[in-house]
Design a protein around this nucleic acid. Structure first.
Lengths: 189, 189
DNA sequence: TTACGACATGTTGATTTATACATGTCAGCA
DNA sequence: TGCTGACATGTATAAATCAACATGTCGTAA
C-alpha cells in the first residue's frame, strides 16, 4: 500500500502524469522504493476511482495529468501521522552474507570488494546530490528540503554498508571446527 | 528467487523442516528478508521437485526434514559467486521522509523521535547479539561467524538510520517559499 | 516526406508475497 | 480421560509486483 501513498505524496506537490510519476519513481525513489509503470498506471486508476485524485488536464499524446483532491491530501497526512511504519527491510546483500561461509576465502574477498565498491560509489552519488542541494541548485522549497533529508539517509545508509564490507574483509577466515564441536543440528522434537 | 536460495543456504548447514526454516526466517532473517510459512512450504516442494533438496527424515506430527543434495549445494554456490546482487532496497521510512514537508513541525518532531527510538533499539539488539557471539556463546563454527558478519551489518545499518533520525531533527523547519519562487510544476510538454 | 526516437498509456500473464482458513498430532497436566 | 497449547503442514484466495507485449502520438532532422 506504500506505492499508493507515494503517488499521493508526489501529487501533493502538484499535478503530474503517470509518465512523470514513473520517472520520478525510477530516478529519485528507485533505490528506496522501486515501481514500474504498469503498477503506477493501475494505481492511478484506482486512486481516481477512490476520489483521492482527479484528472487535472489532458495534453498531447493522450497525456493525462492528475491532481490530488482534498480527500487525497487528507489521506497522505493520515498515512504519515497515523499509520504504523513498516520497518521491514529486504536487503539481498545481507541475506547473502549469512551464507558467506559457503565461499572459499578468495571468493569471499572478491565479493566483499565488489560490494564495497558499489556501496561506496552509491554513497558518493548521494553525497554529490546533497552538496548540490546545499548549494541551492534545486531552490529551497519545502519539498526540496525533504528530499535533502532523504538524501542524507541515503548517504549514511550506503556509507554504513561500505564500512561494513570493509570491516568484513578484515575478519580472519574461520578455521572450521577447531577442536570444538560443530553446529550440526539434529532434527528437533 | 532469493527465498529459494535462502532456503538452500540454510539447508546447507544441515537438515531442517519447513517449520524450522520458518522460525529461522522469522527470527534471524526476519528483518532482512521476511518470509511466511506458506511461501516456504511451497518453495520447499518446488526445490524437492527440482532435485535440489530431498526428504531426509520424517518425524512425529508429520514432520518432514529436508536435506540438501549435491545439486542444491552447487546451486547455492553458483548463486553466491555468479548471480548479480540485486541492490534494490525497500525502506518505507525513507519513502515517507520524502513527504515530511506535508507534516507540521510538531508532527515531524514526534515522528522523528519515534523513528530514532526504533532504530536505536534495533541497533542495540544487534549489538548485544554480536557481543554474545564474540563471547563465544554460540560456538565458533564457520556458520556462526557468517552470522556474526551479518549481525555487524545490522548494527551499522540501524545505527546509521538512528543517526539520520537524530540529524534530521536538527534541520531547521523550512520557511516555505521565502521570497523565492515555488516549486510548483506546470505539466511538462 | 518519411523515418526515428522520445513521449505516453495501457493490457496480459506470470511470479511473488501476504492473509486467512483448515487440519491434524502430540505432550503434559488437571 | 479430556483439555490445552505448541507443533507441523498445508490450501485457498487475494494483493502486489514484474516482464513482456501492444498501441499510438508528436517533434525533428535527414
Amino acid at each position: 500500500m506504500s506505492l499508493r501513498h507515494g503517488l499521493l505524496g508526489l501529487l501533493a506537490e502538484g499535478p503530474a502524469s503517470g509518465y512523470d510519476l514513473t520517472r520520478r519513481f525510477q530516478e529519485t525513489l528507485g533505490p528506496i522504493w522501486p515501481a514500474q509503470h504498469p503498477q503506477i498506471y493501475a494505481e492511478l486508476s484506482r486512486l481516481a476511482d477512490a476520489g483521492l485524485i482527479e484528472v487535472d488536464s489532458r495534453g498531447p499524446r493522450g497525456r493525462k495529468a492528475y491532481r490530488i483532491t482534498d480527500a487525497g491530501r487528507q489521506e497522505v497526512r493520515r498515512w504519515l501521522t497515523e499509520d504504523e511504519v513498516d520497518h521491514t527491510l529486504r536487503i539481498e546483500s545481507l541475506l547473502r552474507s549469512v551464507f558467506f561461509w559457503l565461499l572459499e576465502p578468495e571468493e569471499l574477498t572478491e565479493r566483499l570488494a565488489q560490494e564495497r565498491e558499489f556501496f561506496t560509489k552509491t554513497a558518493e552519488q548521494y553525497r554529490r546530490l546533497a552538496d548540490a542541494k546545499d548549494r541551492g541548485e534545486y531552490g529551497n522549497s519545502v519539498q526540496t528540503q525533504s528530499i535533502r533529508v532523504a538524501t542524507e539517509a541515503g548517504i549514511k545508509l550506503f556509507q554504513a554498508l561500505a564500512d561494513w564490507a570493509e570491516w568484513a574483509a578484515t575478519v580472519p577466515p574461520a578455521t572450521p571446527e577447531k577442536g570444538r564441536k560443530s553446529a550440526k543440528r539434529k532434527p528437533a522434537d
